[in-house]
Every structure is written in structure tokens, then in C-alpha cells.
Design a protein around this nucleic acid. Sequence first.
RNA 1: GGGGCGGUAGCUCAGUUGGUCAGAGCGGCAGACUCAUAAUCUGACAGGUCGUGGGUUCGAGUCCCACUCGCCCUACCA
Length: 533
Amino acid sequence: MPDPKSYYVTTPIYYVNDAPHIGHAYTTVAGDVLTRWHRQRGDQVWYLTGTDEHGTKVERAARDNGVEPQQWCDRLVETAWRPVLETIDAANDDFIRTTSDRHKRGVQRFWTAVKETGNVYEGEFTGPYCVGCEEFKRPGDLIEKPDGTRLCPVHDKPVEDISETNWFFRLSAFTERLLAHYEANPNAVAPASARNEVISFIKQGLDDISMSRSSVSWGVQLPWDSEQVVYVWFDALLNYLTAIGYGAREGTLEARRFDTTWPADVHLVGKDILRFHAVYWPAMLMAAGLPLPKQVFAHGWLLVGGEKMSKTKLTGIAPSRIVDHFGSDAFRYYFLRAIHFGQDGSFSWEDMSIRYTAELANGLGNLASRATAMVDRYRDGVLPEPVAYTNVDLALQDSLVAAVERADAAMDRLDFAGALEATKVFVDEVNGYVTEQQPWVLAKDQADIDRLSTVLYVMCESLRALAVLYNPFMPKSMNELWSRLGASDGLGEIAEQRIAATSRWGQLPPGSRVTKGDPLFPRLAEPTEDQAS
RNA sequence: GGGGCGGUAGCUCAGUUGGUCAGAGCGGCAGACUCAUAAUCUGACAGGUCGUGGGUUCGAGUCCCACUCGCCCUACCA
């Protein structure tokens, strides 16, 4: 029997030379939540992230610091990039580095194969070149003087048009096929705004694009031309293939992985690199005769003070700054809850603080406290058996069914905010239920003992479902909640709970040991000026 | 220059194919309650000429045109 196809999600590989900021973490968290959700659907999942390590900037930075580029990359990966994954609690299955042997081999195989199809040819590249930067500039970056001369924005000196002999990828040959692909697969680029942008770009007509550089040395050498390296994008994009065993010998474990993993189900990308993923990348795959990714999803920017974060403006915020204060779960929750995936969203400490307090501390966390404290106080921590469900109880169960359906449907659209909204509605309903049923009043009258049992059970069983639904978003605290409910004895690990079964009522076994503890999401002091600056 | 997206209550934003669509959350105001993290719940409370100006239509945040403001892409920053 063939292995099932894995649900394969990727993040962009991050450029090592940048300092990791919450924008990078945002993408990684989204992929992590998505894959955890799919694991709880029972899917086979493969989640990939990694680093992009080639190019002039890296080489120059290494030399400036007096080390070899490889050492420079090793250091950045180990001290900066891998730790971020820990910080945000990402459970990626693999981490690909473009300087790894498996990647470089794969890149060379890929381009050799494409060259054999006739889609790579030798040509002349001409562009504005800045001697100071030692690199070609993008025409749009140049400062145009009234007399027509163009200046490098960095060195404020005139650029000159320089030609070099490069190898070109015959992108133009794929224009029609790309359009046909996107017409036949409207979800292949999402959201709709991104699709529009891609399609109108393709319709303008595509030019062949240079896929090698002779002026750069820190890169993957062309197998057929030792003077040139692969242009970084046409090296970097291939990580999605090389990481899962592209080009491995048939019969090997790697080859099997490739067969059961490719094509990717979702490439998560920032909207700035949409074109590479939705135009060049599928064209490359077409040239190589490989299946196309099912979807490229372009998310928006995190804005700070209304502006895109940037290193040069020093508005980049390290994930640990936020995680140290709020914790990784709140980090994961906040960015996916407050911002509609696909759109830009503003981050501010104040907004995060407000939402944390309202939704996690006062909403979900407090609900958990009320439930566990009452079972502890009224029943010595032993979950009672429900006696008779009233219409109110049954209505709440219906609400749960609706919440699970809404959340699961939202996740299909990568609508994280929608999934969290649907779940939060249920939290509010349970809080309302508790207030109306007044178990503290029932506890005062022996005649209400059965009713109290039922209400307490409904509260805890509701929390059981909430823990499952929130687990992909907030694995640490939901695991804690799971154990406070005493759920693992009867139900097993929380990560093993299936989304589809979440709304089936009555899973938490009566008799479970319920324990109260410190608040799941303690109220926090306002972030200090120092933290917020 | 070309292309794309956005401008809806004080704040952050939802609003499928045009007709209870003028909404949610937060904040504000009023009340209830005390199990809980000074948390929770209720309100048939307050708050918007849905960027501007035209147009199509019996009827438009919702379609068309123009304008304006903001953001993004246009060969290596999520």
C-alpha cells in the first residue's frame, strides 16, 4: 500500500543576514498552527522551514567580520535563527539550509535537468551597476536626477550600465501555461488580492530571466559553467524540493519522502516575495516537469506605528521581547487573532496587552479557573457525572457543534482569525452559561445536588473541547489545561485528539481528577516604556 | 511610468453573489452577580451622511467612472 500523501507546508527560508523579527516569527507561527491543526485532523503532515544563506550580502558581511562565509552562516543559524523556533514553540519537521550538501546537490540536479529541456540558454544581461556596492541595482531604487543621470541610493554616485554573460531561464515560454494554470486553479494563489496581482503581472507578458551570476562567488556553482553561480532566488526556491529528497536515488528513504510529500499544499510567503513563488517558481517546476504547489498564500505585513518593520528604521522587534513578557502561547494567539491572515496588521504593545487581558486572562483563563475551582471546592476535585441535561445544556452543546464547524471551515481558508473568533464565541457562551446557572447557588441547597453535578460537568466538558480546539494555537497552556482537567487518563494526549470528534459530547470521563492551579494566563502588568520602546 | 490593495462607530477591524448590512470586539455609560485571575453576565444603552464626487438600479459600503489619501510590487528584507 502506498504511503499517504503528507500535507506539506513551508515557510520562506529566511535570509540569514537579517535579524529575526516578529514578522519572520509570524509566518512560522502561522505554518506551525496550520500543521498542528492538520495533525489533529489526522493528516500526515510535513512542516519545513529553514535559511537562505547565499549571496553577496552574506559574503560581504562575513568578510567584514573576518570569517569565512560558511562560518558566518553557521553562527547566525545557531545563535539567531534556530533559537527563534524554540522561542515561538514551532514544531517543524525539518530545517533546510541552502549551504547544506543535500540542497546544493539538488539545485545542481534540478538546473541540469532543466537545461536539458532547452529552457536554459546563454545570454547577455545588462543593468545598472554600482561599483561601490559591487552589485546590480534595481532601476526603481535609483535616484533619478533632472539631467537624467541615475545615482545609487547608498553611495549617491552614478551607476553605469554593465553587461555580463549569464545563463537565462526561458520564463517567457510559460506565460500561457501559467495563465491557464491560475484560471483552472483559482485557489492556487490566495488571497484574492494576491491572485489578482499575479495574474495581471503575468498578463503583461513575461521576459526571460537571468538565472546565474558571474559577479557573485558565494552560491551554488552551475554544473556546466564553473565561472557562474545560481542566482540566489533560483537557488533558494528549490529548498522546497531539496529538503524532501528531490533527486534522490530511487528506492531510498529520501526518494520515498519526496514521492509522498511533493507537491506542497501551502507555501506561506510574505507578499513581497509573492512574484517569485507564484510566477517564477511554478514556471521552473513546469520546466522540470514537476507538479505545481497547490497553493501559495501571501500574508500581509506587521506594521509598527503604521509602518512596515524594517531593520534600517530599527522598528524590527525580536520575538523574544514579546515572548518574554506574554509567553509563546499568547504570542501565537495574538498575531493570528488580531490580524486577518493575508492583510496587513498593526502591532502595538497596548493592543496586545488589551487583547491578552480580555480574551486570554479574563475570558478563557478565568473560565478555566472558575470551573476547576468549583469542582475542587464542591466535589473535592472529582468530576461528577451529569444527571439530566436541560434545554440550556443542550443549546450549549449545539453551540459547540457550530463552533467546531466554523473553526474547521475557517482553517481550510487559512482564516486563523475566523477560527479563533468562532472558538472565542463559545468561550463567551460558556462563561454566560456559568453566570446564569449559578452553580454557587446550587451548591447551597442539597436539593440541587444533581443539577450542580450536571452544570459542573458541562463546564469541564466544554473546557475539554476548548483545549482541543485551542491546542494548535497554544500548545503549552492547553496541555496544562488538559492535565488540570485530568483528561489524559481517559482520553490520552491532547495532541492526539481529533478535530472532527471535538464536538461529540461526553468524552471527559466522570471521576476524572480535576485540579485547580495558578492562572493559565495571569494578568500582567502593563509593559514598561523600556519594553515598549 | 505600469500593476495591485486599502480608506466602515473614539480605537482595531467584519461585512459571500447589490435589497433588516449599518455590524463585532475593545473603550464609555447603566444594571445584575460573587464561583473565578477586582474576573463574569445583561442592556430592545450611547456612538458612523460606510474617503470625495458622479453614474447604473425600484434599491449600493456592496457594481461602473473620476478624484483624493495611505500602503505594496516592478530581478535577493516575513
